[in-house]
Design a protein around this nucleic acid. Sequence first.
DNA 1: CATACGTGGGG
DNA 2: TCCCCAAGTAT
Length: 331
Amino acid sequence: MTNRKFALLHHRITQWYAASARELPWRAPDASPWSILVSEFMLQQTPVVRVQPVWEQWMQRWPEAADLAAEPASEVVRAWGRLGYPRRALRLHATAQHIVELHGGQVPRTEKELLALPGVGTYTAAAVASFAFGIPATVVDTNIRRVHARLVKGCALPEPSYTAKEAALAERLMPAHPADPEELHPLANAWNISVMELGALICTARNPRCGDCPVQDLCAWVAAGRPAPHYVPKGQAWAGTDRQVRGSMMAVLRHTPGPVGRTALVGGIDLLRPLSDMQLELGSETGSEAHEAWVVLYALAADAEQRERCLAGLIGDGLARETTAGVGLPA
DNA sequence: CATACGTGGGG
DNA sequence: TCCCCAAGTAT
């Protein structure tokens, strides 16, 4: 690709963003670096529509890193609710404490410092440097990888795993870097967020809206007749997996004020006992989230060994702890 | 490098 | 209904 074409891509896609981007609270001009970091944690593998309401409540309750750092982990896990991957809540909590202890409560600016935070990987470090501080880091997420694969390579999907070649391409596509990496570079930032948004709204994994794409005429994939993927993405198993069991256990713990009897959690309660008795004992109303959590857990009770393993895993991950009174959320 | 790790809306 | 998969990270 020529420099001229690069410039055209930069212009078209950032212009499209200016006209078509979603208005999201963490994109507001006055959004704090901390609030942006929180949004990035929540958005790791969780869709925007589910993150937004939780983020709103979260930022109202804990506006600064120090506010979250002072909170017990149990409260953080409860507030995380059903965003999924609750270990992220623990990592965000740990990151808040790290920021308070090592950075005086302020989110660090450099990718290196950001990378040292628990739960911050290459994507999040670059995203925060770029979106929160205007530093021209090269941001690469799943949306950006897909746009690059189609626009430049002419493939329906990026490689199954992130390759060095993709990283090199992402670097090459960035608007020219200034000599000083600390120097702000508005076009580089705009490029990062614009390509990401294009992938989220137009160049989607399924049913891409090429008719609305600002660079359809420059797209290698479209030029090639939109060929099918050259591999089949492996699906994510769910029914009967440890993840499902862990998820249902966490749901029970989140909706229980105090510790839960270990025997009940792992499957000691007689499965044949009528559900109504169980409700009485657990004090949960039919239709409540707590009730639903138990019902799901009981539906999975056939394999007590698996549940034992999952509980051990949750404890090992710090998501649960066992006391003499039973199993509960971390202190 | 492949795998484990939650959850629920949309096609 | 069933299956796909979404702003990834850690091991």
